[in-house]
Amino acid sequence: MFAIVTIAGQQFKVEEGQEIFVHRLEANAGDSVSFDNVHLTSGDAGVSVGTPNVKGFSVGATVIDHVKGDKVVVFKKKRRKGYRVKNGHRQQFTKIKIDSIAG
Rank of each mutant, 00 (worst) to 15 (best):
F93I: 05
A27P: 10
V74E: 09
N87K: 15
K97N: 12
E16W: 00
G9C: 11
T94K: 10
G103S: 11
G82F: 07
G9P: 05
D44Q: 13
N53K: 13
K95V: 13
G60E: 13
G50A: 10
I101D: 02
K86G: 00
G60F: 10
I20K: 02
K81F: 07
D36G: 06
Y83N: 15
A45D: 10
H39E: 02
L25H: 12
M1K: 05
S58D: 05
E16V: 14
N28H: 06
F75E: 00
Q91A: 13
S34W: 03
K78N: 13
E15D: 09
I64W: 03
S34N: 07
E16I: 12
Q18E: 14
T41S: 08
A29G: 07
G56H: 04
G69D: 14
G30P: 11
I101V: 10
D44F: 04
V33G: 02
V22R: 04
R80K: 15
G88Q: 08
N28E: 10
Q10D: 01
V47F: 10
T62D: 09
F57V: 09
D99W: 01
S32F: 06
V14N: 08
Y83I: 15
K78F: 09
A45H: 08
H23K: 13
H23Y: 10
H23N: 13
I4P: 03
V33Y: 01
T62H: 03
N37Q: 14
I7C: 03
L40T: 12
H66Y: 06
D70M: 11
N37W: 00
D31H: 02
V49W: 04
V22Y: 04
F75G: 01
A102W: 00
V49I: 15
V22Q: 07
G88I: 09
D44L: 09
G69Y: 15
G30F: 00
A27N: 10
V72I: 15
K86L: 10
V63D: 03
V72R: 13
V85C: 06
V59E: 03
Q10P: 02
G60C: 10
V47L: 11
D65K: 15
A3M: 00
E15F: 09
Q91G: 03
G103M: 01
K78R: 14
S42M: 09
T94G: 07
V85M: 09
I64P: 02
V59D: 00
A29L: 06
F21G: 04
T6F: 00
S48I: 08
Y83V: 12
N37M: 06
S32Y: 02
E26T: 11
V14Y: 02
D31C: 09
G50N: 08
K81A: 11
T94P: 14
M1A: 08
A27V: 07
Q92L: 14
E15L: 03
K97G: 06
G17L: 07
I101S: 01
R90P: 01
A27R: 11
A102H: 05
R79N: 14
N37K: 12
E16M: 07
K86S: 00
T6A: 12
N87L: 11
V38T: 04
T41N: 06
E16A: 09
N28K: 12
G69C: 13
K97F: 02
D36C: 02
H89V: 08
K77Y: 13
V47M: 11
V47I: 15
D36P: 04
F75R: 11
F12T: 03
V33P: 03
V85L: 12
Q10S: 11
L40D: 05
K13H: 10
S48W: 01
